[in-house]
Design a protein around this nucleic acid. Structure first.
Length: 227
DNA sequence: TTGTGTTTTACGACCTCC
DNA sequence: GGAGGTCGTAAAACACAA
C-alpha cells in the first residue's frame, strides 16, 4: 500500500497536503471518489469542506469534499484531551486555543473532539442509568413474584383447612343425629357450633386477610372446641 | 482478502444564550 | 448576530471473523 508519512502520522495512498492553521488537510492526488455519499437519501445535507477553505466554485467544493481525509489523533493528543475533559467538559474559547496550541491541533479539531466526547459521555451515562433502572425493575418484579407465590401457598392452606372443617362439621352432625334418636338436636336449634355457616362462595385465590372477620372468629371457635 | 460491525473524526442543521 | 451547544450522520480508521 502506498503511504505518505506526515510527522508522526501515517496515511494510506498518495496524498498532497495543505497546511491550514495547525491542521493538516490531506488530499488524495488522483481525486478518485471513495464510497458514495448519495447512497442514502439525506435531506438538507451540504457538501463537506475544510474550515477556512477558500474554495469558491462548486467544483472546488466537490473536489475538496470528496478528497478530504480525516486525521487520526495520536495517543498522546487523545490522552491530553481526555485529561482536559476530565477537568471540565465544557470548552471556553481561551482554553480551546491553549489546548490546540499545546497539542498542535486546529482549535476547530479540539472543539469537535470535545463535542464528540460529550456525546460519548452522555451515551455512557444513559446506558448506566438504564442499567440501574433495569436492576431496580428486576428487583421489584422478583419481589412481586415471591409475594404472589406466598399468596397462592396460603390460599391452598386455607382451602385445605376449609375442607377439614367441612368434614368435621358433617361428621359431628351425623354423630349427633345418631346418638340422640329420642330428642334429635337440630343443628339450627342448638346454638353455637351449628350456627356456623360457610361463606357461600369463597374465592380461595383471595388472600386470607381479606376474608370476613366473623368467619375467621368462627373458625377459631371451632378450633377451640373440637380440633 | 474481504465483508461487516464498531469507533473515531468531522460536518451541517438547528437551538440557546449573551 | 456570533459563539458554542446538541443531534444526526458521513466516512475514514480499525477490528475481526470467515
Amino acid at each position: 500500500m502506498d503511504q505518505t508519512v506526515l510527522g508522526t502520522q501515517v496515511y494510506p495512498y498518495s496524498y498532497t497536503t495543505q497546511i491550514h492553521s495547525q491542521c493538516i488537510i490531506v488530499n488524495k492526488v488522483d481525486g478518485s471518489s471513495s464510497s458514495g455519499e448519495g447512497s442514502k437519501p439525506v435531506k438538507r445535507r451540504r457538501k463537506r469542506r475544510s474550515k477556512g477553505s477558500s474554495a469558491t466554485s462548486e467544483d472546488d467544493m466537490t473536489a475538496i469534499g470528496v478528497m478530504l481525509r480525516k486525521r487520526k489523533l495520536t495517543d498522546e493528543q487523545v490522552n491530553m484531551l481526555e485529561f482536559s475533559f476530565e477537568n471540565e467538559h465544557k470548552l471556553e474559547s481561551g482554553r480551546k486555543e491553549k489546548i490546540a496550541g499545546e497539542l498542535g491541533l486546529d482549535p476547530r479539531q479540539v472543539a469537535v473532539w470535545f463535542q464528540n466526547r460529550r456525546a460519548r459521555w452522555k451515551n455512557k451515562k444513559l446506558e448506566e442509568e438504564y442499567a440501574k433502572l433495569k436492576s431496580q425493575h428486576d428487583t421489584v418484579v422478583l419481589g412481586q413474584c415471591q409475594l404472589e407465590s406466598q399468596v397462592l401457598k396460603l390460599s391452598e392452606q386455607l382451602s385445605e383447612a376449609q375442607n377439614e372443617i367441612r368434614k368435621l362439621s358433617e361428621r359431628l352432625a351425623q354423630e349427633t343425629l345418631t346418638n340422640s334418636p329420642g330428642s334429635p338436636r337440630s343443628v339450627e336449634a342448638n346454638g353455637a357450633p351449628f350456627d356456623f355457616e360457610f361463606p357461600p362462595d369463597i374465592n380461595y385465590s383471595v388472600p386470607f386477610y381479606m376474608l370476613d372477620n366473623n368467619y375467621l372468629q368462627n373458625i377459631e371457635y371451632w378450633d377451640g372446641l373440637y380440633v
